[in-house]
């Protein structure tokens, strides 16, 4: 059962082809979009958040068609969205701001709305700063405010654009915890340019590069693509696409191993590197 179904989506901004014929399906659990900056992740997530319409392709969200005004509203009623670089009305307090978004989510009855605001405030651990102005909060706390507003109304589909970027390690862990909790029983689609987040959280991933989905599947399937292509050596191997010295002093090489190389089990990061590296290689050989 897929909550999100994107088929053949393309989107251009002037000459820039931000998305080029992308397919994506996502169901309950956390699905991750992995890719470098400028890959097209935000563009794809904005389409899934009904904020952007693709130039071409079909999109079905929660079984409905976002290009039809009435169905789009029905989708938005069950959608939570944390945009990349989400801004805030900095003069509002945390409570006022989340309350403002709750109004936009059409929670009209004041008492019930305030109860819901309190619920998401507690869910994201913001109780102690609920009456503080947003401009007085740290970056990590603001990110929590962003997550809190996305959780309003217990949405069936949660779209999170780079939710962990810029957080310190401890906050990052807290965020992973909240996101994985959110992924229980609902569909979460998130983006990251860091493999650690994806490994830790996602049951499915799509690797986006230059506007195309280069891989879709499970993290284990992605990792398996690098099987037999990672080896250690006492030196940087010229055959390696990437190589770096590990803490133990040996070189970890990723690429096409020479005969007799000492192969080691790959990680998801190795596979991602290979996926990112190959097109450039092909270009430089031709």
């Amino acid at each position: 059962m897929s909550t999100v179904r994107v088929h053949g989506a393309s989107k251009s901004f002037g000459r820039t082809k931000a998305l080029d014929n992308v397919d994506l399906e996502a169901g309950p659990g956390v699905t991750g979009l992995l890719g470098p900056n400028g890959a097209g992740k935000t563009t794809l997530l904005r389409i899934i958040a009904t904020v952007l319409a693709p130039d071409r392709g079909q999109v079905t969200l929660l079984g409905r068609d976002p290009s039809r005004p009435d169905e789009r509203t029905a989708i938005r009623e069950r959608l939570g969205y944390l945009p990349q670089d989400a801004g805030f009305h900095r003069g509002f307090t945390v409570f006022e701001f989340i309350d403002y978004v709750a109004i936009l989510k059409q929670m009209t009855e004041r008492r019930a709305r305030h109860d819901e605001v309190r619920r998401v405030v507690a869910l994201t651990g913001l109780e102690s700063v609920s009456a503080k102005r947003i401009r007085a909060l740290s970056g990590g706390m603001r990110r929590r405010v962003g997550l809190a507003q996305a959780m309003l109304g217990d949405p069936a589909l949660l779209v999170l654009d780079e939710p962990t970027v810029g957080l310190d390690p401890e906050q990052r862990l807290r965020f992973r915890e909240m996101i994985s909790h959110a992924g229980e029983g609902r569909t979460v689609v998130m983006s990251s340019h860091q493999t650690e987040d994806i490994t830790a959280l996602c049951s499915r991933i799509a690797v986006i590069h230059q506007g195309q989905a280069r891989f879709t599947g499970t993290p284990a399937e992605l990792t398996a693509q690098a099987a037999g292509r990672v080896w250690t050596d006492t030196q940087r191997s010229p055959a390696a696409l990437a190589a770096w010295r590990t803490g133990e002093g040996a070189y970890r090489n990723v690429g096409d191993p020479p005969a007799g190389a000492e192969l080691i089990p790959p990680t998801l990061e190795d596979a991602y590197l290979l996926l990112m590296g190959e097109p450039e290689l092909e270009v430089s050989h031709s």
Binding site: R46, A86, F88
Partner: peptide
């Protein structure tokens, strides 16, 4: 409007706003 994206993804009627 720093929260424009959030507003766009919300069901509130655009005309009313």
């Amino acid at each position: 409007d720093p929260t424009r994206e959030i507003g766009l993804a919300a069901p509130y009627s655009g005309l009313r706003l």
